[in-house]
């Protein structure tokens, strides 16, 4: 880390070149690699259950997919027929639809809020920041419980039944704050001189925004959308409160847990994991190729 050691050493050593002793260098080498090694261990720890899910997607089980069946050899039948278990693909499609709608709306509303909170001066800004922060500091179970009472006692008279749309509404609500926080971070780290330069070059406010500001903020918005989608897709607690008879993928897994989760859920869970990996890797590559030179 200390790449500028020679210069700084010469100051205090009266001209003698400063070199860390061999022992110090060995020490720092070990220290550096201990950190990397423990980091890799933690990553492995994160992946253990994912690997378990993958392995048990090949289990040739008879009644329930809990223990490995020693008689049956590993099978590909669940991979060939991922929708084989009743309801599993319906649940997946529901989750993807909810995730898509919630992500779209939450990203738009959250980005607008972030722009107002960073770029505009208005009274009540501190209170507004608080309103955005508190949903993140509220336990999910309280959010779910309060939305359930609202939907059951307040909204049923408007004909809103628990189901798909109540889940969407709830997901948009808890995603907004995370979007605001992500986009805000990006906006705050922008160099305002870029926009000033655009205006000096006679760009109007509209073209300054669309040609300079927006492209610079876009990575933050994309990151926020990804975060919103993953939060929505993986949410169980709030969804369980407001879903009624609608079944999302996490709810499907939870409900079928007592009878034994079908291996098709393992196939879908692991495929979504791989899909997410590939998508983000592709995104990173594209981003690296088109990296703006600013």
């Amino acid at each position: 880390m200390s790449t500028i050691a020679p210069q700084s050493g010469s100051r205090s050593h009266g001209g003698a070149a400063y070199r860390p002793s061999t022992w110090r260098r060995v020490q720092s080498w070990i220290a550096g690699h201990v950190v990397m090694f423990s980091a890799l261990l933690v990553l492995v720890y994160l992946f253990i259950p994912v690997a378990y899910t993958f392995v048990f997607s090949f289990n040739n089980y008879r009644k329930s997919n809990i223990v490995w069946n020693p008689q049956g050899s590993p099978t590909l039948k669940h991979w060939k027929d991922p929708c084989g278990a009743p309801g599993v693909c319906d649940a997946l499609v529901t989750s993807l639809e909810i995730g898509a709608i919630a992500t779209l709306v939450a990203t738009i509303l959250g980005t607008m809020l972030a722009f107002a909170l960073v770029r505009h001066q208005f009274r009540g800004k501190a209170a507004s920041n608080l309103l955005v922060f508190i949903p993140m500091a509220t336990p999910e179970i309280v959010l779910g419980a309060s939305l359930l009472t609202l939907f059951v006692q307040g909204f049923s008279r408007f004909g809103l039944r628990l189901g798909f749309w109540t889940i969407v509404i709830a997901h948009i609500m808890f995603c907004i704050s995370f979007v605001v926080v992500t986009v805000k971070a990006r906006l705050q780290s922008l160099d305002p001189r870029l926009e000033e330069a655009a205006q000096d070059l006679y760009a109007g406010p509209g073209s300054t925004f669309w040609k300079v500001t927006f492209p610079l903020v876009l990575p933050g918005i994309v990151g926020a959308a990804l975060l919103a989608f993953s939060l929505s897709f993986d949410d169980f607690i709030i969804t369980n409160f407001v879903s009624g008879n609608e079944t999302t993928f996490p709810k499907f897994v939870y409900v079928s847990y007592l009878r034994g989760i079908p291996a098709q859920a393992n196939v879908i869970g692991f495929s979504m994991f791989v899909l997410a990996l590939l998508l983000v890797i592709a995104g990173t590559l594209v981003n690296n190729i088109r990296k703006p030179k600013v």
Binding site: V50, F236, V253, L275
Partner: peptide, 9 residues
């Protein structure tokens, strides 16, 4: 990425 495997699973 593990988020996408569903935390229940």
């Amino acid at each position: 990425a593990p988020f996408f495997t569903s935390f229940i699973l």
